[in-house]
Design a protein around this nucleic acid. Structure first.
Lengths: 336, 336
DNA sequence: CTGTTAGCGCATTCAG
DNA sequence: CTGAATGCGCTAACAG
């Protein structure tokens, strides 16, 4: 099945290759009769332009890549926000996944592959420090995510600490005094889970309350299932608690299940707040209070930074912290 | 910022372009000292191979595209299953979204863009009949989804009717006699929502029970929110029901919320079953019975068909119906 | 308005 | 083992 090229169309229509190209791109006027012949030839031969060749010739692909650790959940949501913004600039968006298979020849983030795109939005969630340092390319690139990244690179991340503080403070106002930080981790490096723990701490300090490291309950691996197990463990241990700040809504779901099986009513006995404002949080009775991660804002900043970077390689790097907000639902008793 | 090419590296290393290419592709032996010089030159110049050029030269891209109507939810999940299978064949997977903007110059499915890929997995969910007919390309392509598609094309779809039948029959065995078909649609054409309604019907017929078209409650637009409203409407109308088959788990979530606000206990007063087996269905108390859509099976068939098609353009088209299974949880009382 | 020339960066073919 | 020539399919620039 040989590919039909412009040369084939040109021969069929009795014109030169350039005329075919001109008909296709509409960059030059072509006489109507000639144009008609060319279009007829294209149609009868089933011609389709070879974008690979066009890209090589043009030196650009008009395509932006969003590279994520996995396609589902959070990243799929953000991608859907980003897509129309990229298309509005006349470019295409494609998603790629960082292969979870570092031993393979396909590197998880092949710099060569970035060459294919005019710009790259790279989620740093799946990358370690070394991989981050290797991302030293001339390509316009914007990093997304909660880790520390080199200063020289544009970066958009969430206000994780502030979101966690908002949620925790809200439950404290509602009377909570022993708040589990479920799915959070100790430690001072900037990761999603430790930033959110820091917000939990800050809420306590601002309220003049002590906080107890025993209330920081990591969830590893990160799933609703394990979260459910951890809450069971805490209940079994006898550690008293009257609220749970879950580092994500997925974690909160595990807590919902564990609380339900022990008959601990939400919010009367235990308040509960999550982070991510998944759709489901609106519908799981009694409605789960959650920090909205502002997908639109993140998407908007990311695309804006990338666009700016594509226009000016030498612009100073920007580091954006996208604000978040608390969506209050039935699972908390908060103030106000 | 001029791109560094093989010619630059060759000049720097004092060799020919071909030697650089040979070092890069390892297709021919190159003397160690020469190789070292070339590698050093690549490193110092920051050379990265231009994949666009390589692809043009090679006539293939070693890349497969999965084209979906949206990145989140169902498609993100399937994509995560497909990715490792494609990578196992030594190819890359990228996701593209069918633009929701048909008026724009970018067609929702540009056949030209398909040229960029060695193979395409195309979800037909977002396409109308006319768009489907236009997909008349020589590219290896496999269609995914619940619509009727032309016989000549490879196609993988779910056993929607069978899944709906399983879920409904299970609730009938558990004593249900008035089962809402929420989010289902009447009509005989093959769509996801009408196939699932057909399964609901079939379960009634097999059980020797009558079914009443008033119990088919469409949800439009498709969201938990609207589903919640529809269930409210039904309750307000006084139409008696003792079970809900929800066409998707997202729809089921809306039902959960509506039932909770009316104090209708699940499963004591109303049984509930969904379709998709989302993670959340495991954790929303009391656990939502759901049809597992067999992402792995769908992914496996899709990749297998595509692989076969890439190897043999003239193979007869296959139409696969991937089997599903019922995951029973607390929201139903079913038999057995 | 249409055609000719040239080359984007790479890798196959065939000489040396 | 290394190099020179050639062309993948397309389009900018210029000539007719």
């Amino acid at each position: 099945m040989p590919m039909v090229t412009m040369a084939d169309v040109a021969r069929e229509a009795g014109v030169s290759v350039m005329t075919v190209s001109n008909v296709l791109t509409e960059r030059k006027r072509v006489n109507d009769p000639t144009k008609a012949r060319v279009l007829a030839a294209m149609d009868s031969l089933g011609y389709e332009v070879n974008l690979t060749a066009r890209h090589l010739r043009a030196g650009r692909t008009d395509t932006v890549a969003l590279i994520v650790p996995s396609f589902h959940d959070y990243f799929g949501e953000v991608a859907d926000e980003i897509a129309p913004l990229v298309e509005a600039e006349g470019r295409h968006l494609v998603l790629e996944r960082t292969s979870a298979n570092p031993a393979s020849e396909m590197e998880s983030v092949s710099v060569a592959r970035l060459q294919m795109y005019d710009g790259v939005l790279l989620s740093v969630a799946g990358l370690d420090r070394e991989q981050l340092d290797r991302v030293r390319t001339a390509k316009p690139i914007v990093l997304l995510g909660e880790r520390d990244v080199p200063d020289r690179v544009d970066h958009v991340r969430l206000a994780n600490e502030e979101g966690a503080r908002l949620a925790t403070a809200h439950m404290i106002e509602g009377g909570a005094r022993r708040v589990l930080a479920l799915g959070c981790t100790p430690g001072g490096e900037h990761t999603m889970t430790s930033d959110r723990r820091a917000g939990w701490e800050l809420a306590h300090r601002r309220a003049g309350l002590p906080y107890d490291e025993r209330y920081v309950v990591p969830v590893e691996p990160y799933s609703s299932h394990v979260a459910q197990d951890r809450v069971r463990d805490v209940i079994a241990s006898g550690l008293p608690f009257d609220a749970i700040f879950a580092a994500t809504d997925v974690i909160a779901l595990g807590a919902v299940a564990a609380l339900a099986e022990h008959g601990l009513r939400v919010p009367e006995v235990v308040q509960l707040a999550g982070f991510d404002n998944l759709d489901v949080s609106n519908f799981v009775p009694p409605g789960i209070t959650s920090v909205d991660p502002n997908h639109q804002g993140v998407a908007g900043h990311a695309v804006r930074l990338l666009h700016r970077r594509m226009a000016d390689r030498d612009a100073p790097a920007e580091h954006i912290v996208a604000p978040v907000s608390l969506v209050v639902r039935g699972s908390t008793r908060g103030g106000h």
